[in-house]
Design a protein around this nucleic acid. Sequence first.
DNA 1: CGCCGGTGTGAGAGCGCTCTCTTGACGAGG
DNA 2: CCTCGTCAAGAGAGCGCTCTCACACCGGCG
Lengths: 343, 343
Amino acid sequence: MGVPTLEEVARAAGVSRATASRVVNGSPTVGIDVRQSVERAIAQLGYVPNRAARSLVTRRNDSVGVVIAEPTGRIFGDPFFLEVLRGISAALGSRQIQLVLVMSQSLDEERRAERYLTGGHVDGVILFSLHGDDPLPAHLQSHGIPVVVGGEPPRGARVSYVDNDNHGGAVAAVRHLIDQGRTQIATITGPWDMPAGVTRLLAYREALRAAGVAHDPDLEEGGGFTREGGRHAMEVLLGRCPDIDGVFAASDLMAAGALSTLHAAGRRVPEDVAVVGFDDSILALSTQPPLSSVRQSMEVMGRELVSVLLQAIDARDPLVRRVVLGTELIVRQSSGGPPTGKS
Amino acid sequence: MGVPTLEEVARAAGVSRATASRVVNGSPTVGIDVRQSVERAIAQLGYVPNRAARSLVTRRNDSVGVVIAEPTGRIFGDPFFLEVLRGISAALGSRQIQLVLVMSQSLDEERRAERYLTGGHVDGVILFSLHGDDPLPAHLQSHGIPVVVGGEPPRGARVSYVDNDNHGGAVAAVRHLIDQGRTQIATITGPWDMPAGVTRLLAYREALRAAGVAHDPDLEEGGGFTREGGRHAMEVLLGRCPDIDGVFAASDLMAAGALSTLHAAGRRVPEDVAVVGFDDSILALSTQPPLSSVRQSMEVMGRELVSVLLQAIDARDPLVRRVVLGTELIVRQSSGGPPTGKS
DNA sequence: CGCCGGTGTGAGAGCGCTCTCTTGACGAGG
DNA sequence: CCTCGTCAAGAGAGCGCTCTCACACCGGCG
């Protein structure tokens, strides 16, 4: 009848509730025989601790919030995010911590989410997809809630984060284009208020400079991290510099857009123009030709995010922790890789 | 100092804790002036009810579990799922119910998930991506936990579900191919243990029969809902029936695979072979040419799932509820739509 | 033989909330 | 004037758990 309580377990094992609790929580000061009889009672009754009662007294929730504040919808078009969630889920699950997903799309929802998060219902928060000067991390921190950001945090924010090596990945991509003998290398950039986009652009410039190529603003155009933006940026670039022979797009989605423009303009890829994207998302395999791209392991990112967050929670310190994950350039046909680029 | 409690609110407002509780929960038996002074105290102190304490006594959790049991990874390659989550999140958020995400990929994780869910930590469960004879829904129900399945449930299971009109969508797709004058229409099917795949296949057959076309098993090949499977299935089909001029793939991912085979085989799409997919996922726009597909609003599905689940929770009955959502055929270039298929 | 520290177990308070039961106030009816 | 019904507000128990403190027991030492 109903869910068994600790009390019932204790009675069945012939001990006090306190001792039963000790067994459940793995206290070392319990006699071996007593422990066993309690464990037997637990198994027999199918006892599961009541989280609510527990967190009422421990003031811990054993749950962390994962926030996707994305009114613009970028992240939704991008399957990479599910992988991060998977990594987070796996890491939390093995620690018996639950994952509370919070997606806010309107200002109204964001307000509600914030009230929820600051209401002490989670032990920590993982934040995604922050734009420019989002005050959310600072706000949560001021309430004493541990926070870690996935991706580069807003500039100047004193907050822990786990990020992919956007810089290294972008440099590798551009250097690869240079190595292919391309000399007119353009870039399609992300929005200016997203740190990842800015970092990739700066890395593009740096890689060119390192190769002794002069910086040409005409070779840079924004694509807003959308397919349509990539398509349009490529048109603009082609109009300004018809002899472009290499393109580094700061996301696969934009690269896919660029590809369709190039196709429409009669440019062959990679013969006339080599293209490299970023993210190595599922898209990279379905473009024609398959897209070279910078791969980042999103599942690893998820695990790292959890690891950093739990450190912060356990340590109870306001330390800022940073983790940068390596990236890898995957060369496919769009930049001269072998014709059959199977997964 | 710390999070304010109801007690403190009551003291600040000069009332008893019971009355403060009444105000918080919107009881009508509170005088207007008392109510206002309590509300003022709440606002001033920034009071947020403690969920743990509340659910300890109400025996409600105000949270529902969303389970993705997907060892095979199909769902992860598919961005459609984030949209469903968005719909679920929005619907739950407006009701102050939290979304606990449970992703189990190994048997071990699944066991843990099941223990968690049956431990009374959630008021209800939304299940996804079930295979053939998954016992999870029945098992949860036997513990008295309301369950609703996203997509078609295992055959024979007595469980509520919300599904897209796979049948209607597939029929529309095949009929469209017929209307285009195609006579050798093949299909690439999903796995046999996934109801959605089976339904789409049956609908394909029915649509052909309705058009007076004889059923030819040589025109059917499984693609396992993966890109590689689609690629391979198309090779097999082409080997068996070289004069295929239409293909209905039961998912966009498989359609994308089929497209690359057709491309490699020198078939023009749509001139030689018209192709239609299913899901209208983000992929459909990035293939060359853009893919005709059957659209289903995943966000609506999410909202409906929540609506059905909350009904079941509130009603406390074991009624089986079914909702089928309409689909829409989106015609793009791959089956003869206009050349520039913008979003 | 008494005292000590260590070790295993029990008793009981209390976390913040809801909800039933009781009390108090007030106006209407006898 | 007293009684009764009605309605707003308070008192208090108790949800299932953790954790501090008290206690009993035991071996070793002076």
